[in-house]
Design a protein around this nucleic acid. Structure first.
Lengths: 197, 197, 197, 197
DNA sequence: AATGAATGAGCGTTCATTCAT
DNA sequence: AATGAATGAACGCTCATTCAT
């Protein structure tokens, strides 16, 4: 173990971070393993020491991104009680994550085109998990009487759909320096809350 | 000249329809020109008689899909007057289009990953056109006093975002045979309309 | 037979003339049959009515060029008696032909790279015919006592070699408007004649 | 590292040697990269590790051939003083080079047909360099009073032209085993020298 | 473990040739 | 006879993957 190891961190992680940068810019088929290796500052062969194929690296990268997002979300949600607050937090945390990790965001948001059965299954699964998480949040709010009784799935679509739209503005729009300062986000939340009262 | 010519139409169209099928299943980089030719039942070289490159074929296909969708939408919108009706129609027409043309839908919906400057520009342009079309519909409704004064862009995000979410369910969910029978769509519209009253 | 036939001449000839233009600019492999057809203002399929393949067209074109050159040379040589005059005429006629038919010239001069066994054989044959023609001219001059007894083949190499060099200057050099006005040609002939006296 | 590495040298050289063999037999357009790779006993992709395109390989090969010829010529010319000796050496060295490297010779001699602007420029440049080298040799001989005052360019054409003719006999004529034993070469030199006295 | 030179399957594209009209 | 739309074999080049070091 030399001094470099401390600096460079675990190679596996370096490769995943590089994969995020390259896959998000070029898409799955457009990205070259060699470029990922260069960005990660490792040899091309080294990528294959940690991941058995390009596809495997892509799948592991998707898992890593979702995990990172969920960790942040979980941390921020502690102590939040009312539905409106939760919704606010959900938008805020998500948009901030997107803003800070634009590259990852492109992968989270993008309906990446069919790459392969395995990839599609994983991405679909992750989407469904999110829908069901939001649905549960809504169901809980209904039980608490915070909002009127509505189809929780419909609300989940509404919330996730508009969040994705606003989010893609944040990611693609380079003119906006600060993500939260835009009233757009608040306006969207307002309309949703009014519709649910 | 045999009976087939009448059915199949000219080769150019056959190739575009084949491109929709293949690009939507495999994405731009994953699709092979040879497979498109096979699906279109033409020789590989024939593709290049009508399109100067794979990229050109992709662009022309995107234009074709959007045109087809807009033609249908324009026809259905004739005589629709109130905002609620327009919104209803917008959801209905879009979801029906998605259901009937699932393959095209995957291309309309998918945030195709960066393929190339030209492709990106075209896709971004088409998205912005849709946002501004919906925004105008909202502005008009505000002027008519049908809905309260809100940020039209926020509403556009809400509408297009949730429509995309519901739409992706329609496209990906194979369990649902009938698209319109689900109350999901109605529930989403209801919440939006309530939020705008 | 319509008026066009008189103007356009025989299609076969039009195609050969087009072949000269295109093959000389692009070489055998670089030339496209379609381009030759366009230049000849006939359909692509028509080329195959007159020539059974691209290679066949090339061979026929080479024969045509040599025949044309030989016809001109034969005509000009009538009545020329002394060796010096013959040499002068040979240079003059050849350089004038090259100047007037630069495109053909490129094919006559160029050691076209190996295209195919048949093509090579034909071109080699034509070269040998030229060497033997010049050799005979030299032998005759020796018999007449016009020049000292030398190896006729050596003289032929000298004459044809330097003629090819001067000729390539004529063809490639665009600065020279008039081919014959250059003293270069005279200087070369002078040195050769002195060497043979 | 096995014994072969020492013999075969680095792969780059193996590929250039293979390129000489294949390009000289088939010409630029007729040669296939795959065949060059096979002859070099490397994978097809390996060619592209060392040369960025087929055209690049061709250009590098031309440079390599000229360099090799010039190296040999420079070495042999040391100590040669009189013009006649120089001319003798020039013929001898060139014909020997052609005989020993028939494949390279075909490329040195052949007026390769237009391949591409870059290729043409390089080949034309190399030809002009040769003409000017011979011209200088002649000028020097005139200054020394070894030969009578003549147009140096005319002499250069004469020398290079007849050398090319004799050379092409050497390369194409398979019947002659020994190049130098033919009196042809001596006869040509004799005539030239007599013409210059 | 780490590397990158080497590989060859695979793809986009071209173009000589055919054939229905 | 004349055509040009259609074809598919063939080629230049790329890049995921392997393997000797």
């Amino acid at each position: 173990m030399n001094i470099n190891d401390r600096f460079c961190g675990d190679k596996r992680l370096r490769i995943i971070e590089a994969a995020i940068a390259v896959f998000s810019r070029k898409g799955f088929h457009g990205a070259k393993v060699e470029e990922i290796a260069e960005v990660a500052e490792v040899g091309k062969g080294t990528v294959y020491e940690y991941f058995k194929s390009k596809k495997d690296l892509f799948l592991e990268m998707v898992l890593y991104i979702h995990k990172k997002y969920e960790d942040i979300a979980a941390r921020e949600f502690l102590g939040v009680i009312t539905f409106r607050q939760r919704l606010q937090e959900f938008f805020r945390v998500t948009l901030e994550f997107l803003h800070q990790h634009k590259e990852m965001a492109l992968i989270l948001l993008a309906d990446h085109p069919p790459v392969d059965g395995d990839v599609n299954r994983l991405i679909l699964l992750k989407k469904q998990q999110q829908v069901s998480k939001v649905s549960k949040m809504v169901e809980h709010a209904i039980e608490q009487g915070e909002i009127r009784p509505v189809n929780p799935k419909a609300v989940a679509q509404l919330i996730l759909g508009s969040l994705a739209m606003v989010g893609s503005q944040v990611v693609l729009g380079e003119e906006e320096k600060e993500p939260g300062d835009g009233k757009l986000e608040q306006d969207v939340i307002d309309i949703i809350m009014r519709g649910l009262k």
